[in-house]
Structures are given as C-alpha cells and as structure tokens.
C-alpha cells in the first residue's frame, strides 16, 4: 500500500479560556472535554488509512495529582454499529466449508483506542467491564441469546480477534499525550477500510485508577464527492448504475479498438 498516513489534525476551540484549578476551596470535581475542529472527514480517492488527532483538556485538575502524573485519559473512536455474522469453516471431505454461524447485533464496525499508558496500568478489569471500555470489554449481543453459551463465547472471541486482525479494532498505547498540565492530544488510527457513517469519539478521565468522568463528540466519516455519488447511485438507482457500467465498458472497448486498430 502506498501513500503515507495523513494526519488529520483537529483543534480545540476555546481552550484559552479554561478556568484555572481552584485552590484552597472545597474540591471541585474534575471533568474532561474533547473537541473536534470538524464534524466530518471525507474519504478521498487516495485514502489509505489516516491518523485522527483529537485535542482535549482536563478541567479543575488537582495540581498535586497532576504533578505525580496520576491522571489518565483514554480516548475511543467507535464506528457505527451493524449486525455481523461470524462463520466458522470446518473440514468436509477435505474441503474447508463454512458450517456453523452465529449472528451478533450492534457490533461497532470499528473501535480505535488511544491511551496515556497500557490499559492494565490505568485501572482494573472490573472497571473496564463496567464501563464496557476496550475492544475486549465491548458489550456484544448475540441475536439468539438462548443458544449454546460455549459456542456464543467462542464466536464472540473470534469476532474480536478478526476485527483486531483486520485493524478495525486497534489500540495505541501512548496515543494520548499531555501537552501541558490540562491540555492533551490523542491520536487514533483510522484503518484503510474504516467504515463510513457516524462515529462517536469518547474521552474517559481516570484519577489514581478511579473513573471520574466521560465526555463524547460525534464525527461523520463519509466518502468524498465522486465516490459518494457513485456509492449513492449504486444503492438508490442500481439499474441505472448497471446501465452506466455497461455503457462505460462498451465505450472503452470501442475506443480501444479505435486507438489500437488491429485489422
């Protein structure tokens, strides 16, 4: 694959007017903000994956905890959810055939995570499960909840493994960096086959391993003008699109003969 990763930098507006952490008064709870300068990203003809930068800030941070580096931030970009069929191949007469399958509802098509430190160093597994945070803790619902629980578990694990293998579920340790006491920058990876649709960016703040606050923002990823037009046409006016495809093929064949005449 050619074409380097393009940094899609987004900036946070209104960072300058952050309130300075209140001192000496009753502790005001910290909160987290994330900001996207754009609410849509266009996939152009030369798209081959990208890095998305999200800026954010921790408000009302306790300077002492901050100095000790005990604040942790996890930023997640979650793709639109779709039902997914997981199929397993088994050997029939020496040939590998899809036999068993399991359908899951509402599986995010992509799930990119950026963190300040490795996930296991930030907080414990129970917290992650409660927050449904991280590719391994996402709540995935089987279409048939009364099915064999062992099979469902196996297929669910395979679903996560496949999503990770294709880069759609990814994790970037150290992808969140504090630029100053309050300001941080998160870089999440968009895979070359990132799904189009409305993505949800979420920021999670932890203090000393305790979950404090969550915030979210929306981001639309869509195909750019020409690609989007073709895609729309193929879905909404399939027959017309088919005629266009046939016409284009005939035109190319005719032109080819005109240019490189053989007889």
């Amino acid at each position: 694959m050619t074409g380097g990763k393009k940094a899609l930098a987004t900036t946070l507006a209104a960072l300058c007017c952050l309130p300075v952490a209140a001192l000496a008064q009753a502790p005001v709870p910290e909160s987290i903000q994330i900001g996207l300068s754009t609410d849509r990203i266009e996939i152009t003809a030369d798209f081959s994956g990208a890095d998305l930068t999200i800026f954010g800030s921790v408000e009302n941070a306790d300077p002492l905890i901050n100095r000790q580096g005990r604040y942790d931030v996890i930023v997640v970009l979650e793709g639109p959810a779709r039902p997914v069929v997981v199929r397993r191949k088994d050997r029939v007469l020496g040939v590998w055939v899809n036999l068993q399958s399991e359908t899951f509802l509402n599986v995010p098509q992509s799930y990119s995570v950026a963190t300040t430190r490795p996930l296991q160093d930030i907080t414990g597994p129970t917290n992650y499960r409660q927050l449904a945070l991280g590719a391994d803790n996402l709540h995935i619902q089987p279409a048939d909840p009364d099915g064999n629980p062992v099979t469902i578990q196996q297929f669910e694990a395979a679903l996560r493994e496949r999503k990770k293998a294709t880069g759609l579920f990814n994790e970037r340790v150290g992808g969140v960096q504090f630029l100053s006491a309050n300001l941080f920058r998160a870089t999440v990876s968009l895979a070359p086959n990132v799904p189009v649709g409305t993505h949800k960016a979420r920021g999670f703040l932890f203090r000393n391993g305790v979950f404090v606050k969550e915030t979210s923002a929306h981001l639309a990823i869509q195909k750019s003008g020409f690609e989007q037009m073709l895609f729309r046409l193929s879905v909404n006016h399939g027959t017309f699109y088919g005629f266009v495809a046939v016409g284009l093929a005939m035109l190319t064949g005719w032109l080819g003969r005109l240019i490189f005449r053989r007889d």
Partner: peptide
Amino acid sequence: PPSLYSLTGLTV
C-alpha cells in the same frame, strides 16, 4: 485457511 472464522456484515 489462515483463520477458520470469517465475518460478514449484514445491511440493516
């Protein structure tokens, strides 16, 4: 096959 499992998205 490199992986026994495969995923297919269903359109809503």
